[in-house]
Computed example of a mutant assay.
Amino acid sequence: MKALAVLALMAACAPATLSAAEVDLDQLRDIVSKYKDINVALADGYITPDNHCVSAAGEGLPPELGAMGIHYIHPALLEVTATEPRVDGKGTHTDWMRPSILIYEPQADGSLELVAVENLVFEAAWNAAGKSEQLVLNGRSWDHMADDAATPGDEAHGFTPHYDQHVWLFRENPMGVLMPFNPNVTCEHASH
């Protein structure tokens, strides 16, 4: 229950009005399945800023939440403007048929397995674009992520404050297909 309380707090700071998207997850799975081959993702412009595998424990959260994996971002879709000291951008991309982030789990043999997709919009860019609606996917509000300097973990995973939503298309998540972390994902085989 402690883990669920942490996740509920992650979504607490959402904008006022509602902008809901209903996405057919089977259709989305079909569209992005080509990215199971990391070389296709790389050829389409996805990169990893730091090859960091995000785990709940590594972010100062309860280890039983599991992990996310390694995020491969699409800089053009995110309109990345900086990578230091944090990834920042002007992106407000919300098209689920072309997600801005692919998430891979490192495998024991050194390969990467596609487990999820994600969309992310930078909070400052969202506000600067005059958008005030709450981002919602299939009935769930996107998570608001901002690092808390008073904690040892990095709640924003190297990004400036943003809203994001994960979709676990290729790995069952007992906490729910739209939750940020997955107990069935591990960073055990990450190179660093």
Rank of each mutant, 00 (worst) to 15 (best):
A56K: 06
A56S: 13
A57D: 12
A57G: 00
G58A: 03
G60D: 09
L61A: 01
L61Q: 05
L61S: 04
L61C: 04
P62W: 05
P63G: 08
L65C: 11
L65F: 09
L65N: 06
A67H: 10
A67C: 11
A67R: 09
G69L: 07
I70K: 02
I70Q: 10
Y72P: 03
Y72A: 06
H74C: 00
H74N: 15
A76R: 14
A76L: 07
L77F: 05
L77P: 06
L78R: 03
E79D: 14
A82P: 09
A82D: 15
T83N: 04
T83A: 05
T83D: 03
E84F: 03
E84V: 08
E84H: 10
P85Y: 09
P85K: 12
R86D: 06
R86C: 09
V87T: 14
D88V: 00
D88W: 01
D88M: 03
G89S: 08
G89I: 13
G91L: 05
T92R: 05
T92H: 05
T92I: 15
T92G: 02
H93P: 01
T94R: 15
T94P: 03
W96Q: 04
W96D: 01
W96S: 00
W96R: 06
M97G: 09
M97W: 07
R98E: 11
R98Q: 15
R98H: 11
P99G: 06
S100M: 00
